[in-house]
């Protein structure tokens, strides 16, 4: 793979397509980007769960999880919530515009290890972004896995990311795909209720299963609680952390949580490890 010797120098990539997943103050916009350099494009490989440092020159960079599976093609997808200076600048990008990309960074979901198991993903809001590549990966290699259950919720249907994709999935009888929103809406044909509750309703078996969760801290807390109720062991549960990051390569110290560098030791953590780091859920 062609690499920049200096890991701080980003690659340039062109935005091929963008669309809004959600609207409002903290809208989520998805970018489909392609590296400018053909060699970089060919040699780039990432694994579900990994992140990349994306940015706009002159504004800065943000660590964003790669929300597509490498199985999808020679492009990258990022879903970005408008929060601060950098994400605001990113939101201004349209098809044809340039962004910078460094990475991929961090560890990934041990999908090989999970082969033969039933994969359960539980996501909330923008937390579904790192979940999506797992879903896509398992779908693409469905025969290798013991099944896929997806639970995904948001406050309202307007806050759901990847809504069309998932609605289609929900119609697929082979997959167990459960969408939910907090409050009843008209013409909403799916579940209503908080994600942790839906998890109990779906009642997945911990037998030979792996649970992956990501979402707002409060949701994670109750999901973990409920997973335990369902009989999941700590080492069957995975989650991804999101901390403030600057360098992405374990130097700047920003992302430390306890003795972990989230950018290198994470972002994917097994709950057995994570619960030993008090700062992780601070």
């Amino acid at each position: 793979m062609k690499t920049n010797e200096n890991p701080y120098i980003p690659y340039f990539a062109t935005v091929e397509d963008t669309w809004f997943e959600t609207g409002g103050e903290r809208a989520i916009k998805t970018f489909k980007v392609v590296f400018d350099d053909e060699e970089v494009r060919k040699n780039w490989s990432h694994r579900p769960g990994q992140c990349a440092m994306i940015g706009v020159l002159g504004v800065g960079e943000s660590m964003i999880s790669i929300s597509c599976s490498p199985t999808e093609g020679e492009f990258l997808r990022f879903s970005v919530m408008k929060m601060g200076k950098v994400t605001q600048a990113l939101h201004q990008l349209e098809a044809g515009d340039k962004m910078t990309v460094r990475g991929p960074y961090g560890n990934s979901f041990p999908l090989e290890k999970w082969e033969g198991k039933h994969v359960l993903t539980i996501g909330g809001g923008i937390g579904q972004a790192p979940m999506r590549p797992v879903v896509e990966y398992v779908k693409a290699n469905y025969e290798k896995y013991g099944g896929l259950t997806m639970i995904y919720g948001a406050r309202t249907s307007g806050d759901l990311c990847f809504k069309n994709e998932f609605e289609e999935m929900a119609r697929d009888e082979e997959l167990s795909c459960h969408l939910t929103i907090d409050i009843e809406e008209e013409q909403w044909g799916h579940n209503v209720g908080f994600v942790p509750q839906i998890l109990l309703d779906v009642n997945p078996s911990p037998e030979n299963a792996i649970a992956v969760t990501c979402g707002p801290p409060i949701m994670i807390r109750f999901v973990l609680e409920n997973l335990k109720k369902l009989g999941f062991e700590d080492d069957q549960i995975y989650t991804t952390l999101e901390n403030r990051m600057k360098c992405g390569i374990g130097k700047c110290g920003r992302c430390n949580a306890g003795n972990m560098y989230v950018c290198k030791d994470g972002p994917v953590f097994n709950y057995a490890t994570l619960k030993e780091i008090p700062e992780a859920f601070a």
């Binding site: 809208a27 916009k29 408008k82 605001q88 939101h91 201004q92 349209e94 515009d97």
Partner: peptide
């Protein structure tokens, strides 16, 4: 501001 400025 979400949109990209396009100035005339």
């Amino acid at each position: 501001m979400i949109e990209k400025p396009k100035i005339g």
